[in-house]
Measured scan of single mutants.
Amino acid sequence: MEVRTIKVFTTVDNINLHTQVVDMSMTYGQQFGPTYLDGADVTKIKPHNSHEGKTFYVLPNDDTLRVEAFEYYHTTDPSFLGRYMSALNHTKKWKYPQVNGLTSIKWADNNCYLATALLTLQQIELKFNPPALQDAYYRARAGEAANFCALILAYCNKTVGELGDVRETMSYLFQHANLDSCKRVLNVVCKTCGQQQTTLKGVEAVMYMGTLSYEQFKKGVQIPCTCGKQATKYLVQQESPFVMMSAPPAQYELKHGTFTCASEYTGNYQCGHYKHITSKETLYCIDGALLTKSSEYKGPITDVFYKENSYTTTIK
């Protein structure tokens, strides 16, 4: 009895394709271990004539594949690729409408935090270190965002349907971005203890939790000093293409032309909904596939993004 075979390709990165001759009487799992086709788990399936010449994702289970996976995804987590594939199996079914010149995501599976993050990423200057993220990001900007969303979920250790947080998501993504040249110098002034300067680099240099107003941050924000008295913390120097200011959701007025974009969060910790506000020729609110415009805006804002380049204080 002759062994019926077909020729397929296996890959971990969709760049390096490895030619395989597979036995049609055995499952993919018996031949390769966990195997995925377009995100779908085909591990328990036997090869079919229609699979001839198709590319299958496999887990990096030998040295060659491990090197290829690390170079593309910059992670050695053995569960990463499987999590990416199972997320992709959902995100490829989502709709990605162009809204006001940006790629958004039609609401499904509690994905409003991903839509808000995706919209924000198209408006701030950011370059990702893992080629996987950078490639998928370019495709997302062009309207094909399924891979990018699935990668975000995998890097953030999230599953489809789980509630997510924009600030946490951005923080994970910033860790995989090139923020080497970003720098922030802060000064804390206390009447009792004097003053202390701190220099922050990388992710810490672009994120701040405690106030939404970048102007206020430049002037000074009140913080408790270690001595128990009130101290003032203010920005001395900022070198970065953008800054992200966050605070627990509270009524906040966004003035046209003073910011790049913002995240609105309605609801409580267990259950809520994100919308995205962007400042173009007027203010726009993007909620999944829905767009509304207004000249002014007041609502429960939790993150505001500002364009920056270089700032030095005039406070002496």
Rank of each mutant, 00 (worst) to 15 (best):
V185R: 06
Y234C: 07
D23G: 11
A231F: 01
I15D: 05
G164Y: 03
V166D: 02
K46L: 15
H273P: 00
K191L: 10
Q216M: 11
K46G: 10
G202N: 05
A145V: 05
R4N: 15
Y155G: 01
S86L: 12
L151K: 03
P241W: 00
K92Q: 11
C225G: 00
A250M: 08
P60I: 07
A250G: 12
L121E: 01
E215L: 06
T75D: 07
N178I: 01
M245I: 04
D62K: 08
L235E: 01
D63E: 14
Y208P: 00
K95Q: 09
Y214N: 02
V58P: 05
V22M: 11
W94D: 05
P78L: 08
K127F: 12
A40V: 13
I301V: 09
V22K: 07
V160Y: 01
G272C: 00
S86K: 13
V236C: 08
P78T: 08
T76G: 14
E215P: 05
F174C: 03
T278L: 09
L119H: 00
V22H: 03
A177M: 07
A262N: 05
K275R: 13
S246V: 02
M209W: 15
T103V: 12
L163H: 11
N129F: 05
P60W: 09
L200Q: 15
L212R: 03
I152H: 03
P224R: 14
V8N: 01
G143S: 04
S181R: 14
V304S: 01
Y138W: 10
S79M: 15
D77Y: 03
E281I: 03
Y306A: 01
L179R: 01
C285K: 09
K233C: 14
T266H: 08
E296I: 12
A132N: 04
I223K: 05
E71G: 06
E281D: 13
T76P: 14
E215V: 06
T169C: 11
W94F: 03
H90I: 13
Y306K: 05
V21Y: 14
Q30T: 14
V188I: 09
I277Y: 03
E215I: 06
Y234L: 07
V42W: 12
G39L: 08
G288V: 01
N147G: 11
L119Y: 01
E144S: 11
L163D: 06
Y214C: 03
V3K: 13
C193H: 03
E125N: 10
V188K: 13
T312G: 08
Q134V: 11
Q195I: 11
T10I: 13
C227Q: 02
N157P: 03
L118S: 04
P248L: 14
C225Y: 01
Y155D: 01
Q30F: 06
A132E: 00
I45W: 09
I277K: 02
E253M: 07
F217N: 03
D41G: 09
L212K: 01
P60S: 07
T266W: 06
E2F: 11
I277C: 00
H51V: 06
A140K: 03
K127N: 10
L81C: 10
V12Y: 06
Y36T: 05
G299W: 00
V304Y: 02
G164I: 00
E71K: 11
R167H: 06
P249L: 01
V304E: 01
T159H: 15
D135K: 11
M244T: 01
I124T: 03
I301C: 03
D38K: 09
T282K: 12
L118R: 04
P248K: 12
E281W: 00
K280F: 11
A117Y: 03
A145K: 04
D63N: 08
P97W: 00
Y265K: 00
T260I: 15
Y274N: 03
L65I: 07
Q237C: 12
T11V: 05
T19K: 14
H48W: 12
T292S: 15
V166L: 08
T278K: 01
T35M: 15
C193M: 04
Y172P: 01
Q237D: 08
T258F: 07
T76K: 08
H74N: 09
A69Y: 08
T103M: 05
H18D: 08
V160M: 00
A136I: 03
D23S: 14
T192L: 10
P241T: 09
Q238V: 00
K316E: 15
L179P: 04
S181Y: 12
F242H: 01
M170E: 00
R184T: 05
A136T: 08
E215R: 06
T5L: 12
A140S: 08
N187M: 14
A205R: 02
Q197T: 14
E2D: 15
M209Q: 15
V42K: 07
Q122K: 01
A150I: 02
V189E: 15
P34V: 07
N111L: 03
L119W: 01
Y274V: 01
E296Y: 14
C149N: 00
